[in-house]
């Protein structure tokens, strides 16, 4: 096993540090060491998007990023989106539109939609579908997720 290394980084606006185990992923580090289980592990192969976080403002699958690569960088997870007890507008739109069933895909999708609307405040339907095509959802058939994106965009 590789030597244990200490890293520090900013997570949801706070300086955090922790000891890495071998070549562990940012996802595992967030979930197990920093105790932020909001980002989910549905494939750990970059196929499902459940683990999506923002790394220096860029949407990444945290299961594909080595935790060591995040040293000194800025990470935003789903836990960092609500402000002062109020849901982020994208989170609120997911609730209102009925875009959540089992919810396992939801944290990743919420982060992906936050990223989309930052880049593209009023996306077309095709742009929404393309932007979210890396986030699998097994429950909803996506229709209500698209509704949530339109709702959040319309409210902005």
């Amino acid at each position: 096993m590789l030597a244990h290394v200490r890293i520090d980084l900013t997570v949801n606006g706070e300086r955090r540090e922790g000891v890495l185990r071998g070549g562990e992923s940012l996802l595992t580090f967030l979930r197990d060491t920093l105790e932020l289980p909001g980002s989910k592990n549905a494939c750990e192969q970059g196929e499902c998007g459940s683990c999506s976080v923002l790394l220096d403002g860029t949407l990444v699958c945290s299961c594909l990023v080595l935790a060591a690569q995040a040293e000194g960088h800025d990470v935003v997870t789903v836990e960092g989106l609500a402000r002062d007890g109020a849901l982020h507008p994208v989170q609120q739109a997911f609730v209102d539109a009925g875009a959540v069933q089992c919810g396992f895909c939801t944290p990743g999708l919420v982060v992906a939609v936050v990223d989309l609307l930052e880049r593209m405040p009023h996306p077309s339907d095709d742009q929404i579908r393309e932007a979210l095509s890396g986030n699998l959802c097994r429950c909803t058939g996506y229709a209500k997720i698209f509704d949530a994106v339109r709702l959040a965009a319309g409210r902005a």
Partner: peptide
């Protein structure tokens, strides 16, 4: 249960 599901809690 949608609220705890969208916040990650």
């Amino acid at each position: 249960d949608a609220v705890p599901k969208v916040t990650g809690e």
